[in-house]
Nucleic acid binder design. Structure first.
Lengths: 139, 139
DNA sequence: CTGCGTGCAAAGTATTTGCAAACCG
DNA sequence: CGGTTTGCAAATACTTTGCACGCAG
């Protein structure tokens, strides 16, 4: 797994305390977090922290590939840590019970293929399910 | 293809002018529309029309299966007409050039299957591409 | 030093709610 | 007639911007 702080440096971003805290928070948590949740967690751990800064950092970290923007229908933005290799195409599955994010390998869709008369340029694939730990609880 | 107005009646919703206009607008347009776009189109065609009513109707029509909420990353909500059978599992592909929505049959994922150690409960799959008409323009 | 990064306050956008009047069935 | 549905105004939720100060490189 790539080292979060290295990724930030390689992207030409400064490694400020705020940035470092956010990156490590996601690396430890491994769950989808909204900007507001990130702010609350940072406040508990490190004192004050402005929401605009959180938004800017989440975008910056998503831009450099460390975080992933989550697809969804609502107006709520969510990000999560993506520990995979940059060039490795894969998708994610989120546990509806505990929020843990898993990786799904072997995607069957790829750029350029034809589907229903269209040439595919990009796709969103995202799963919800139950992880190994939560399965026994909800059989 | 199901008759939009029938679907509304069967869902126990009243068939008001506003509702009828929205349903027919989507049935004719066959493109993803945001609440604001819907309001503007209705205003042009039928005079005034309140945004809250549009929001409520879009949700109601999505609830009864006539419209589909579009997945995405932004904060902008989009809906589109879904002329398929209710029980027929399929996904959609949106032309990035003209916005036309096509159907993709034969999804390879289904409820209950195991993926990466998770039991799948639901999934979002959505494509962007170029439709037959727009393909020649962008070779 | 220099310019990116930060917090704060304030501005934007998108969506939702309360309510009285209008309307379908 | 009675419960939905509607438009309007206002409230809410979420996100972005402007700006002066602070800190990494």
């Amino acid at each position: 797994m790539r080292q979060p702080l290295e990724v930030i440096r390689n992207a030409g971003l400064k490694l400020t305390p705020r940035r470092r805290e956010i990156a490590l928070l996601f690396a430890e948590t491994l769950k989808p977090l909204s900007p507001l949740e990130v702010q609350e967690l940072l406040r508990k751990r490190f004192g004050r922290c402005g929401l605009p800064g959180v938004y800017r950092n989440l975008e910056a970290l998503a831009e450099c590939g460390l975080l992933l923007r989550l697809a969804g229908f609502g107006r709520e933005r969510k990000y999560m840590f993506c520990p995979g290799q940059e060039k490795h195409h894969h998708h994610h599955i989120i546990c509806v019970s505990c929020g843990k994010v898993g990786h799904v390998e072997g995607c069957l869709y790829h750029e350029g293929m034809m589907l229903g008369g269209y040439r595919v340029l990009s796709h969103i694939v995202q799963f919800e399910g139950l992880c190994e730990n939560c399965l026994p609880k909800k059989p």
